[in-house]
């Protein structure tokens, strides 16, 4: 990988500070979807972005937001390209991002078990902690919730339903 220049680093930081359109507590950098910024010529920049889920509609809002932020920073020509490989994983969410998710009321994804077979749902070795009361006694209501990336769970202790950012 080519080392980023100072300008690229600065633009990377700017693009990375854009909030996620659906989970505004997280920045794109914390979500781990920003793959790089390339300055091709003065005033001409390409931003590489990877989608969380293949069909996630948020990527279009993310692209528009990145373009706006970089335009405001004096870059007239910004193109955001979608890269698929290597595939995004919930392991790409930063520690700070996980903390913010929990604070926001969404149970963060658990780290992948390195011994689990690749590509499958993660075996439930660690329990999902309720983001409201902290209890580990929670149950799955549905594998799919308000967005493709979340599952719906309920806390057995405090009885509150909550979203869980499921492992991918």
């Amino acid at each position: 990988m080519v080392t980023e220049t100072l300008l690229e680093e600065e633009l990377h930081r700017l693009a990375g500070s854009v909030p996620d359109p659906e989970l505004p507590v997280l920045t794109l950098d914390e979500l781990g979807v920003l793959r790089g910024v390339d300055v091709l010529a003065p005033g001409k920049v390409t931003v590489r972005l990877t989608p969380t889920y293949t069909g996630c509609p948020a990527i279009e809002a993310m692209s528009a937001d990145i373009e706006r932020v970089l335009h405001d920073h004096g870059i007239p020509e910004v193109s955001v390209v979608k890269v698929l490989s290597p595939a995004w994983s919930t392991d790409d969410i930063s520690a700070e991002g996980r903390r913010k998710l929990a604070e926001f009321g969404i149970a963060p994804p658990r780290p992948h078990d390195v011994t689990a077979p690749a590509g499958g749902p993660v075996p439930l070795t660690l329990s999902v902690r309720c983001p409201h009361c902290g209890s580990t006694d929670t149950e799955l209501l549905s594998r799919f919730s308000s967005t493709a990336c979340k599952a719906l769970r309920r806390c057995v202790t405090c009885r509150e339903p909550f979203d869980h950012f499921k492992e991918l």
Binding site: T54, L84, S85
Partner: peptide, 14 residues
């Protein structure tokens, strides 16, 4: 298709 498949297979598992 490799890149798309590597990504989509994780979703299809669900």
């Amino acid at each position: 298709f490799a890149g798309l498949a590597a990504k989509a297979v994780k979703e299809v598992a669900y």
